[in-house]
């Protein structure tokens, strides 16, 4: 009960803070939209070269895929690993550790505020992209119902995974390399460069086994209506399993990390 009250207060403060940076959040939108549009354009060129259809994907399917991908990545993105290094290096984490609330909660709130704030504008932009590229959605009602838990699981999974990486900052002082590695892994395996069905066979198998596709690609496929009910069940199970593993890993690594942490200079 008290946690709910704390969250309400933090969210309120978060929204008030975010009101100062409206232009900034519009700019981040540009980042969110450019990469999917780039790959959409490339796949359209491929589809056109192949007579309009590759592996069941027509131009409209690609458009739907990348519109959904943009929407999902906006909803699931997490960025703590970028900030956490700074907090550790500056010793700023010390103050947060003294508070009765786990630092995780502050970053959950920050995450929620950003997403809720940017969603309306992104929605409009995505509708425009959908229309201009002639997106075809194969979505049915049950797809949308399944999408909700799937995108929440994906966001939680990406968030926790990002925290595991962030926690490495307790030992390493330069986290940029770890972040780059994570970003590029997502780039390949999460479905940004291609829908999983169009990946070469071995890469597909690896993607299904690793957690990264479940962070973005899986909810994207559900939202655009590209999966059967059986596949949806598999996706939800895969997401839950990976979330559980990541959560346990986080708790383990966090406990050891806090012990290793001695605020730089303290």
């Amino acid at each position: 009960m008290t946690l709910a009250r704390i969250y309400r207060a933090l969210l309120l403060a978060g929204f008030q803070q975010a009101a100062q940076y409206r232009i900034q959040s519009l700019l981040w939108m540009l980042f969110a939209i450019i990469r999917p549009v780039i790959f959409l354009a490339a796949w359209i060129a491929v589809a056109v070269a192949q007579g309009g259809d590759i592996g069941g994907f027509k131009v409209g399917d690609f458009a739907a895929y990348y519109v959904c991908m943009t929407f999902v990545s906006q909803l699931t993105m997490a960025w703590n690993s970028h900030e956490f290094e700074w907090e550790v290096n500056q010793g700023r984490l010390s103050a947060k550790l003294l508070r009765p609330l786990h630092p995780l909660h502050y970053s959950v709130v920050e995450n929620l505020v950003f997403k809720l704030n940017t969603l309306p504008v992104l929605g409009v932009v995505l509708i425009l992209v959908s229309i201009s590229f002639g997106a075809i959605y194969r979505t049915q009602v049950w797809h949308i119902i399944a999408f909700i838990p799937s995108v929440i699981l994906a966001a939680a999974l990406l968030f926790m995974f990002n925290w595991v990486i962030a926690t490495l900052a307790f030992w390493a002082t330069r986290m940029r390399t770890a972040n780059t590695l994570f970003q590029r892994t997502l780039f390949i395996f999460a479905g940004q460069i291609a829908p999983i069905g169009l990946m070469p066979g071995w890469l597909q198998a690896v993607s299904y086994a690793l957690p990264f596709w479940y962070m973005m690609g899986a909810p994207t496929e559900i939202l655009r209506g590209g999966v059967t009910q059986e596949q949806v069940a598999q996706i939800l199970i895969g997401q839950s399993v990976w979330l559980a593993i990541t959560f346990v890993a986080f708790q383990w690594i966090w406990r050891r990390g806090v012990r290793a942490y001695s605020a730089v200079g303290a």
Partner: peptide, 15 residues
Amino acid sequence: LGAVLVLFTHTTSLN
């Protein structure tokens, strides 16, 4: 480069 290679598994020419 990997991304380019994936694209070219489905085509021999991009525009």
